[in-house]
């Protein structure tokens, strides 16, 4: 009961359990910077929109990889289905964007739920193969079903109405960026609540040791299905957002490259603390853009080289840096309390 009864480890556990619930200064600063970018970087909104979309995709991966330990090379399946669902919804039903996002989320969740049972069958390597396979199958289906998806030429004729009937999507991408950033923030807040809930802790238990988790009564399979479905909804929203801001879909949304991009930026930023995808997406896209403007022909070489160096230097660095900064800020505040 009393604090003095606690072992040092027990106190640490309590501290760790409490830590993520409060918004730290670093987190607040991060989002203030994001808001500031809307006003300070009007010329960069197109690439920032792409970064926000990639960040949501990485966030969806973080939910399953960082918190439930499910490795996936097929997140593009849900992303792409969400994108096509939102595109077809805009063409055949209505161009209203917010309901389009929900359609994308539902489509992603349905695909994820249906395929999640395949994930229960094996360990990491099997999961890599299964997720890869599901995405490859869907890619081929979209390629073949040209009457529905436009096939290799891409889906044409998408027109998105102004958001809330007020804000039209402009050529400079201002509306698109504010919209994407808002969606990213909302999804982040929800993810933050989820991973800090008892549900989230049970996921981490599954991640760290599935056998032990089931021994203490965590329904492992049900948890995995649930989080994979949630992750699918997130990826579906990312896809729908892509459709709405680009108003065009090509088969690239279902490609292996899309899955790999998501996994790569999450790896760069570090999984398991929700900011990894955002930091990774920001770093990767900005480096890519700078290099490809500088040398349109050879930029991939430099990106590859940077990635190798990055992995050699240590993947945990960005996360460690964030944790250190947060700890320092908290430490400073803790003294005053």
């Amino acid at each position: 009961m009393a604090k003095t009864d606690m072992t040092p480890n027990g106190a640490k556990v309590v501290k760790i359990m409490r830590r993520p619930v409060r918004w730290s200064l670093a987190e607040i600063a991060f989002w203030l910077l994001a808001v500031a970018s809307v006003f300070l970087l009007p010329g960069q909104h197109l690439i920032l929109t792409e970064i926000a979309g990639l960040a949501i995709l990485a966030l969806s991966l973080d939910l399953i990889l960082g918190y439930a330990g499910v490795v996936s090379l097929g997140q593009a399946a849900m992303y792409g289905v969400g994108a096509y669902a939102a595109g077809l919804y805009a063409i055949h039903v209505t161009g209203e964007p917010l309901s389009g996002l929900l359609v994308g989320a539902a489509a992603g969740a349905v695909i994820a739920f249906a395929t999640s049972f395949l994930l229960l069958r094996g360990a990491d390597l099997t999961r890599l193969m299964v997720t890869l396979g599901v995405a490859a199958v869907l890619f081929e289906v979209a390629n073949k079903a040209a009457w529905l998806t436009g096939g290799a030429d891409g889906l044409q004729g998408i027109w998105i109405d102004p958001i809330l009937g007020l804000f039209d999507f402009d050529l400079e991408g201002h509306t698109g960026y504010v919209y994407s950033l808002t969606v990213l923030f909302v999804l982040f807040v929800i993810a933050r609540l989820v991973v800090n809930s008892p549900f989230g802790y049970s996921l981490k238990a599954v991640r760290d040791n599935p056998l032990r988790a089931s021994a203490v009564g965590v329904p492992v399979n049900a948890r995995l299905v649930a989080v994979y479905t949630l992750s699918g909804a997130y990826a579906g929203i990312a896809g729908a957002l892509f459709t709405q801001t680009q108003q065009f879909i090509s088969l690239d949304v279902l490609s292996f490259q899309k899955s790999a991009d998501g996994l790569m930026v999450l790896t760069i930023g570090g999984p398991g603390y929700l900011y990894g995808g955002m930091i990774g997406a920001l770093a990767y896209k900005l480096i890519q853009d700078a290099l490809s403007g500088f040398t349109p022909q050879y930029w991939q070489f430099w990106v590859g080289l940077l990635l190798v160096i990055f992995v050699l230097v240590g993947r945990d660095r960005p996360r460690q840096f964030v944790i250190d900064v947060m700890a320092r800020l908290r430490g400073g505040k803790g003294g005053a309390q």
């Binding site: 010329g43 197109l46 991408g173 065009f248 090509s250 690239d252 490259q257 349109p296």
Partner: peptide
């Protein structure tokens, strides 16, 4: 002004948009 689209539609679109707006 030559820009790379990495053979993808997504990047072709963004690069074109930037070429026109920026």
């Amino acid at each position: 002004i030559i820009r790379d689209d990495a053979s993808t539609a997504e990047q072709a679109l963004r690069v074109s948009q930037e070429l026109v707006t920026k």
